[in-house]
Design a protein around this nucleic acid. Structure first.
Lengths: 129, 129
DNA sequence: AATCAAAACAATAATAGTTACTGATATTAA
DNA sequence: TTAATATCAGTAACTATTATTGTTTTGATT
């Protein structure tokens, strides 16, 4: 069980309050509204600890900075090539693809991570106008 | 059609000669054996151009540095949590998961990228000893 | 082969994201 | 309440990558 601190709780609260998959920098900016003198180093340290402990997810989806997700349940993400937004995908698990991947491979497949990309509903709407 | 240069060809040759999915730094070290005064900036610039033109693949799989693959054909990769090695997976495409992901999602799914992880054949062998 | 503009080069400075260090402060278990 | 430990703020350092600059190479055209 992970210890508590005002800073850590505030970071976790912020992540729970949004579906926007923010970067460390964005977390910092938002948490600073409540704890003005929190330092960026503290944000990084706690994001790392929370990701390590499994309380949040770290998303490394190829951009310049990692993103974080307050929902630690296994789920998939979608990256919009138009606006850069990262959104959740509601879909049933793809555990079976581990079996497909393991066929003929000598090693042990423990899991996978996958990102989908394209054009999000909002940007599709704008194009239609 | 992309222009040629001694440096660019050497980078591409090296990537074609290995299945090890090297980082930019590793490419640099190896190409330097043939072109001792090539600069790291040139390696980065050419890796970007080759990835852009579709001649190689860039793998952003969550580590600190990107990796590159001289085989531009769509295929999947496996990351060993023991030794850090990145290997190719021989498996049939997973295009159907785009359809699964798109069900009930308002946007347009153009593609996905996925990485599998676990313990590679080599490391499994060592554990057995 | 000589010319010439575009592209690429080496070298290096700069940037961005992240991690490490330090002495001070807060948290937790007893 | 206290003592041990973890965390903090502030800041320096580090790493991967990109940008800049003046020079050289490339390749199409004579």
């Amino acid at each position: 069980m992970i210890k508590h601190s005002r800073q850590r709780d505030a970071i976790l609260d912020y992540l729970h309050s949004t579906k926007s998959h923010p970067t460390a920098e964005t977390v910092y900016e938002n948490v600073r509204e409540n704890i003005p003198n929190i330092s960026l180093g503290t944000v990084y340290r706690n994001l790392n600890m929370l990701a390590e402990s499994g309380d949040i997810l770290r998303l490394s989806c190829g951009g310049t900075s990692d993103r974080y997700d307050g929902n630690p349940e296994q789920h998939y993400h979608f990256l919009c090539k138009e606006c850069g937004r990262v959104s959740d995908l509601e879909m049933s698990g793809l555990e079976h693809i581990n079996v497909i991947a393991g066929a003929g491979f000598g090693g042990t497949i423990e899991g996978h991570f996958a990102y989908f990309y394209g054009c999000c509903p909002e940007c599709n709407g704008e194009k239609a106008n």
